[in-house]
């Protein structure tokens, strides 16, 4: 009986131990969210809706919000089709030389220092164009977005049981139709998760924008070939300022960025119509 008691004691202390460690592990997340809310809410409450629409000198971050959405949209437009095709390729030809190389390269791209992407796009697009621009920033973000969506696409498709693949080919369909009309729709939940995670990632990126978009906070962007702003970049700029008022604005912008991030991320948890196999 004493053996049982000892084991039970060990068991309980183990569970208490990992519970505490888990809590410590995720504590920073709650701390960040709480701090951003505590510091961000007062400034937004004070300025009201104009905080979202006014230009910077009038106490708002409207152009930065617009810039962020433009950048998300453009980078999706450039990055998503490529990502989808790369992911499908890696799934369809996993044993080919290029297929294997693709998987390795995607892993590298996932972890690649994003500031180097910014430097690359600056030299390839911003300098030849002679100006910072939304399109340059969108290219940089698309390069960062691509591996996330590609890896999720490949993984989602790999999870489809082989029998559905056989069933599709068994109906006398060509490979293109099997992939795009049956297997991709069948794994759309996983693919969409990848898309949203990719978007959430690029919505918050700062480094790749430093040398590409320029920044625009006193007027709304008018053209994709001209400089734009972005919320993370604005936060970076405001925090460097010595003025306390600018710091307040940075907290407000942080809260908006957090909300946009959550807005993209929450649908991942709320299930899209779940496919039951």
């Amino acid at each position: 009986m004493s053996g049982y008691k000892t084991r039970r004691g060990k068991d309980i202390s183990f569970i208490i131990g990992i519970t505490i460690l888990t809590f410590l592990g995720i504590l920073p997340l709650f701390h960040i969210i709480a701090t951003v809310f505590i510091n961000g809410v007062p400034i937004i409450a004070k300025k009201g809706i104009s905080f979202l629409t006014n230009t910077l000198s009038n106490g708002g971050i409207g152009p930065a919000i617009a810039g962020t959405f433009i950048l998300i949209f453009l980078s999706s437009l450039i990055g998503l089709p490529v990502a989808l095709l790369v992911g499908i390729y890696a799934y369809e030809y996993p044993e080919s030389k290029i297929g294997r190389a693709t998987k390795t390269l995607l892993q590298i791209m996932l972890e690649f220092p994003t500031i180097l992407v910014g430097v690359f796009v600056m030299s390839m697009i911003a300098i030849p164009m002679g100006t910072y621009s939304a399109i340059a920033g969108a290219f940089a973000l698309a390069i960062i977005l691509m591996p996330y969506v590609a890896v999720y696409t490949q993984e989602a498709m790999r999870e489809i049981p082989f029998t559905y693949r056989e069933a599709s080919f068994g109906l006398g369909l060509s490979r293109v139709k099997v992939i795009f009309q049956i297997l991709v729709p069948l794994s759309k939940r996983g693919i969409l998760t990848g898309v949203l995670i990719g978007l959430a990632k690029v919505a918050g990126e700062t480094a790749p924008l430093l040398f590409t978009v320029g920044g625009l906070y006193e007027s709304y962007p008018a053209s994709i070939t001209e400089p734009v702003g972005a919320i993370p970049l604005l936060i970076y700029t405001l925090v460097q300022s010595p003025s306390k008022a600018d710091h307040m604005m940075a907290w407000g912008a942080s809260l908006i960025l957090l909300l946009i991030f959550l807005l993209i991320f929450i649908p991942i948890r709320l299930k899209l119509r779940e496919v039951r196999l």
Partner: peptide, 13 residues
Amino acid sequence: VGMVFQYPNPFPH
């Protein structure tokens, strides 16, 4: 030549 498989595999979506 149609085929039916061991695991009932109608397309779930």
